[in-house]
Design a protein around this nucleic acid. Structure first.
Length: 458
RNA sequence: GUGCCUCUAGCUCAAUUGGCAGAGCGCUGGACUGUGGAUCCAGUGGUUACGGGUUCGAGCCCCGUGAGGCACCCCA
């Protein structure tokens, strides 16, 4: 191994992948925790699936562009495998495998890492986490409305401001392509062009449409349609009228009207969602309503994508099972939460450091620490070699531990301990048998802990 | 996958036309043998991302690789 050192690369992480510090992990876990509680409040149950799937399971589901981003390799047994690209296709495969055990409609949530071989940018990584809720086995627009309602509750629980859900319908997009008078093969470039409306403006879209082979007259008609944006109520009539002779489009509009009706009944605030005919969504498997949740600041764009995919599960099963779901990108959520300090998070889990002044108090601090732990307080003792009060307090300070419990000869003799608040520097003597109750109280009154019961994994 | 920009101490950044690689913060020790975070004093800091080339001489110029950023593509 010694000669390996000569050619050894600097210890770096792979492009687009990263390590997380304790502080970052605590924030990520906090966000995940909040999402999980919202998901469970609606009755979604957790599942997990392997990171690796047979390549064939993933292949052909994401369109030409997506296919190129699949991590693909051959394992030691000669199998063609791929890293999962999202959590939706693995769900479809899961449903096919567990079909007989499932009670439909099946509601599950799934939080975990996915992989895309993209060129990284801010808020865009090669390994990132998705947080999905899906409903399998119903065509009801109630399901589509519910997953969007979950989104709204989740974003509100995370205190994300100004997130807007843009909603469109795959059939409406296709109607747009028909209105543009292009053959199906060209439809994709039409979707691509209109999806850029917000970015390049009407003139830019017109240019792209014409370059894609759309007649100028037809391009105008398309522009007229996607120009109509805003609150569903104000938009529906116009679009209905403009696409009056397209039966498919009318059906799609009926579905969206139903969806928006349920969404309002779910209590979704005005302005939290809009009908946006320019929203495209590239994934091949979408068949019905599609949505994207967009935030303007910070400029990371989409926080998540959603949509109905009634034919995906059928690709793994003889039987066709309709489904719909919504996905949030953990990294992008964390980016927003972090940028605005929406969820203040401690730098360490430790709530108390129990310190000994001298060697003689060592066993006593271990007893105190165990007592705190037994009562649900996250406590630690300093594990360094030397018993050195200064060093121990310095350790607590650097780690951001908010309290120290000091035990010295005086305390031991008097049957007390010293409880020191390391943020304010105040300290008090507390009877040894009251330390747990007092520490709990101080943790609450200083705001380190919420007043209510602790939440989380416990 | 394409194009452009960036990479100097643990961190943030300096370094004249190519001419001895620096500062602040941090870190270590002390002032302070039962008190961290403040202050003062001293000390510690580098294969200039990695590999090669040009040159008497490269942090600086050239090529390759890696990573980060921006735009495109696409998306969470």
């Amino acid at each position: 191994m010694s000669d390996g050192a000569q050619t050894r690369r600097p210890p770096q992480v792979l492009r687009g992948m990263r390590d997380f510090t304790p502080r970052q992990m605590l924030l990520r876990q906090r966000v995940i925790d909040i999402l999980r509680r919202v998901f469970e409040r609606y009755g979604f149950d957790p599942i997990d699936t392997p990171l690796l799937e047979y390549y064939e399971v993933l292949s052909g589901k994401y369109g030409e562009e997506g296919e190129k981003l699949l991590y693909r390799f051959v394992d030691h047994g000669g199998r063609e495998v791929g890293l999962r690209y999202d959590l939706t296709v693995p769900l479809a495969r899961y449903v096919a495998v567990h079909r007989s055990e499932l009670t439909l409609p099946f509601k599950r949530y799934h939080i975990g890492p996915v992989f895309r071989a993209e060129r990284p940018q801010r808020g865009r990584y090669r390994q990132f986490w998705q947080c999905d809720v899906d409903v399998v086995g119903t065509r009801s627009m109630l399901a589509d409305a519910e997953v969007l309602s979950v989104w709204i509750d989740a974003l509100s629980a995370l205190r994300v401001p100004n997130a807007v859900i843009h909603v469109n319908h795959r059939q409406l997009l296709e109607a747009l392509a028909r209105a543009a008078g292009v053959e199906p093969a060209l439809a994709l470039s039409v979707y691509r062009a209109i999806d850029k409306l917000a970015k390049i403006g009407e003139d830019g879209v017109r240019e792209e449409l014409i370059r894609a082979g759309v007649e100028p007259k037809a391009a105008e008609r398309v522009l007229e349609l996607i120009r109509v944006q805003g609150h569903p109520e104000t938009v529906f009539d116009t679009v209905r009228h403009l696409l009056a002779e397209d039966a498919e489009a009318q059906r799609a509009l009926d579905e969206l009207a139903e969806l928006f009706g349920y969404l309002a009944a779910y209590g979704a605030p005005e302005g939290s969602y809009i009908l946006d005919l320019s929203l495209a969504r590239g994934l091949d498997y979408y068949t019905g309503p599609v949505a994207e949740v967009i935030v303007r600041e910070p400029a990371i764009g989409s926080l998540g994508g959603a949509g109905r995919y009634d034919r995906l599960i059928g690709m793994f099963l003889g039987e066709e099972i309709p489904a719909t779901g919504a996905s949030l990108g953990l990294e992008r959520l964390v980016e927003v939460v972090d940028e605005y300090g929406l969820l203040p998070t401690p730098e360490t889990v430790s709530e108390v450091l129990v310190v000994a002044v001298e060697e003689q108090q060592r066993s006593e601090i271990l007893r105190v620490a165990q007592e705190l732990r037994a009562n649900g307080i996250d406590a630690e003792v300093y594990l360094g070699e030397r018993v050195d009060l200064r060093r121990q307090l310095q350790y607590a300070n650097r780690k951001g531990i908010p309290f120290a419990i000091i035990v010295g000869p005086d305390e031991l003799a008097a049957g007390v301990v010293t409880l020191r608040n390391l943020v304010t520097g105040e300290q008090e003597r507390v009877a040894r048998h009251e330390i747990v109750a007092t520490a709990l109280q101080r943790l609450v009154t200083t705001g380190r802990r919420p007043a209510r019961e602790r939440t989380g994994q416990e």
